[in-house]
Design a protein around this nucleic acid. Structure first.
Length: 333
DNA sequence: CTGCGCTA
DNA sequence: TAGCGCAGG
């Protein structure tokens, strides 16, 4: 998922604290849900499920993450994807193929008793399907958190909302919003900060990436950043074999973007992709309103339908109403 | 991912 | 009271 800009952007990330991030956060909903689905699993890869076998990992993630956002003065708005552009079709099919294959390999690893491999494959088999999206929207709404439908890519819409001044930054693990021109992107906005990477437990702190910082640091324009994304591959085109971010940056800086494409992929016209990043479908018609959480209905949904523990849910909700309550409730809701 | 209980 | 490991649904 996303574009592999990490290697050239690593220097331009700035650590931030939660206290420095008050205001409205435009959350890349698909990215957040995928993260929850892929990570909130048992060691053998089994996700959290209710007694009917329905996946609940995303609901757990949404409840605790957003309770924490609200407690700390961050007002999240979740931006969901609309219909993808035609030229994303190949990417979508390829992802589906990889996902299905991971599902098969998960089964195989389980049969062999290879727990580590099972967990890895299970993560890759995660799918943000219609059911996941609908249940997520329902819980978010009950928590009083606005959900926006993008005309097309959620990342483009979230970016637009920051540019309009309706949100302060985008929350996503992916760098794609930079291509859409987001002024500020925040990654690792998690509560614990703890992650398991290569079996080791490491602490990841929230970090911000600003587009001006990246462009200035790399000495390029946004158009050139998009050119790099086209060369190395992104959500909308596969990129050229053997060209990663470093080589892409070099080629683009020496003005060889068109020449390289002409030589390597004469039949590929990058114009639609470039144009999509520069002028994506977006809308200014959205309502941003936060409400106090409907604690009764949340409990009905999570505990009544999905077997969540009443104590855990109530505790999370108390955190929102209690702390956010007295100080900021009036201003927000 | 997140909360929580146990350990030093 | 920080750090680790496990359960959560």
């Amino acid at each position: 998922m996303g574009v592999a800009l990490r290697d050239i952007i690593v220097e331009y990330k700035v650590p931030v604290t939660w206290e420095a991030l008050p205001g409205v956060a435009a959350v890349d909903a698909h990215n957040a849900l995928y993260q929850f689905l892929s990570i909130i699993r048992q060691p053998d890869g089994t996700p959290l499920m209710d007694s009917n076998g329905r996946v609940t990992s995303h609901l757990s993630g949404i409840l605790f993450r957003n309770a924490s956002f609200l407690e700390r003065g961050i007002r999240p708005v979740y931006v969901f994807d609309g219909p993808p552009p035609d030229f994303k079709q190949k990417t979508i099919e390829e992802r589906r193929r990889v996902r299905v294959q991971a599902g098969v390999r998960w089964e195989e690893a389980l049969a062999k008793g290879d727990t580590k491999e099972a967990y890895k494959q299970a993560r890759s088999s995660s799918k943000v399907d219609r059911e996941i999206i609908e249940t997520s929207k329902k819980l978010l709404s009950l928590m009083g958190i606005p959900c926006i439908e993008a005309p097309s890519e959620g990342e483009a819409q979230a970016t637009h909302m920051v540019m309009q001044g309706d949100a302060s930054y985008v929350v996503s693990q992916d760098y794609d919003t930079l291509l859409f021109g987001v002024p500020m992107l925040v990654r690792n906005l998690t509560i614990s900060g703890k992650r398991k990477i290569h079996g080791r437990s490491v602490t990841l702190n929230p970090e911000k990436v600003t587009l001006p910082g990246v462009l200035k640091g790399l000495g390029i324009t946004r158009e050139q950043l998009i050119q790099i994304a086209v060369l190395i591959g992104n959500d909308f085109n596969p990129g050229l074999k053997g060209i990663g971010p470093k080589t892409g940056l070099k080629l683009v800086k020496e003005g060889s973007f068109e020449k390289t494409l002409r030589e390597r992929e004469p039949d590929f016209d990058p114009a639609p992709v470039i144009d999509f990043f520069l002028q994506p479908p977006i809308t200014s018609e959205y309502d941003l309103a936060w409400h106090p959480p409907d604690t009764v209905k949340i409990e009905e949904m999570l505990c009544g339908e999905y077997n969540f523990s009443v104590e855990r849910v109530q505790k999370a909700l108390e955190g929102i109403v209690g702390k956010a309550g007295q100080k900021t409730l009036d201003k927000w809701f």
